[in-house]
Simulated scan of single mutants.
Amino acid sequence: MSAITLRFLAEPHTINFGGKVHGGTVMKWIDEAGYACATRWSKSYCVTVYVGGIRFHRPIRIGELVEVEARLAYTGNTSMNITVEVRSGDMKGGEMEMTTECLIVFVAVDSDGRPLPVESWTPETPGEMALAQHAKAVLDASRAATAPRG
């Protein structure tokens, strides 16, 4: 399976002093959904090696229905590049709005923490191809920003 969606209600214990869900809580949900997607794909324990391009579009309010969708964007030899979108909204209205998005890279590892090969995934639809290009662009930008200057 190349995608997974977690759904739940935003609860009062997740709020910050402004009355909205903590950004750190949203980041935890993102990591959990990404981990579930990566583990399901690789059938192995996985570790997070990169989180980037995180963008908070709007806050999540208490009582809203939250969806955290993790989708495989592309694979390397041992890595899985996963895009995660968080949406939320009033359950009665049914309309969900994007709240947060980012890219996470996971690596499958063995019991000693050594990388394991993962099955290759090939995007097939135009949407999947665009997602793969976006993920690559985020990683390329990150690499360029951290490259040694000389």
Rank of each mutant, 00 (worst) to 15 (best):
T39Y: 07
G127Q: 15
A147W: 07
V107K: 07
N16Y: 02
F17E: 04
A141Y: 03
P117T: 01
G52T: 05
V107C: 09
M96E: 09
H22I: 00
T75P: 08
F8P: 03
L131K: 15
G127T: 11
E119I: 00
E119T: 07
D110L: 07
G52P: 10
I60Y: 10
L65R: 05
V47P: 08
C46Y: 01
Y35I: 06
P12E: 14
G113Q: 09
W121Y: 15
I62L: 12
D90L: 07
G52H: 06
L103R: 03
A73S: 15
K43L: 13
M27H: 03
C102F: 01
T99H: 06
E64C: 03
V26D: 01
G34L: 12
A147R: 15
K20V: 11
A36T: 12
A70F: 14
Y50T: 09
A33S: 15
K20S: 09
T83H: 12
L131F: 10
K28W: 00
R114S: 03
V109W: 09
L139D: 04
A145E: 13
C46F: 05
V138T: 13
E32R: 01
T78K: 07
H134T: 05
I62T: 15
E119R: 12
S120I: 11
T14F: 12
V68A: 13
V21E: 01
Y74V: 04
K92L: 14
S2M: 05
V138F: 05
E67A: 08
Y35K: 10
R40I: 11
T99F: 00
A36S: 12
Y35V: 08
V49I: 13
R7E: 15
V26S: 03
A135L: 12
Y45E: 15
D110T: 03
S142C: 01
R7F: 04
V86T: 06
A147I: 04
P123D: 09
M96H: 14
I30Y: 07
T100W: 03
A33I: 06
G93P: 00
V26C: 00
D31W: 11
G52I: 02
M129E: 11
P59N: 02
I104C: 15
P115D: 14
R149H: 05
A38S: 14
S79K: 02
F106E: 02
S142N: 13
M80G: 08
F8C: 03
K20Q: 06
T39D: 08
F8W: 06
N81E: 14
P12H: 13
A141N: 13
A108C: 08
T39V: 04
P148L: 15
V86R: 03
S120M: 14
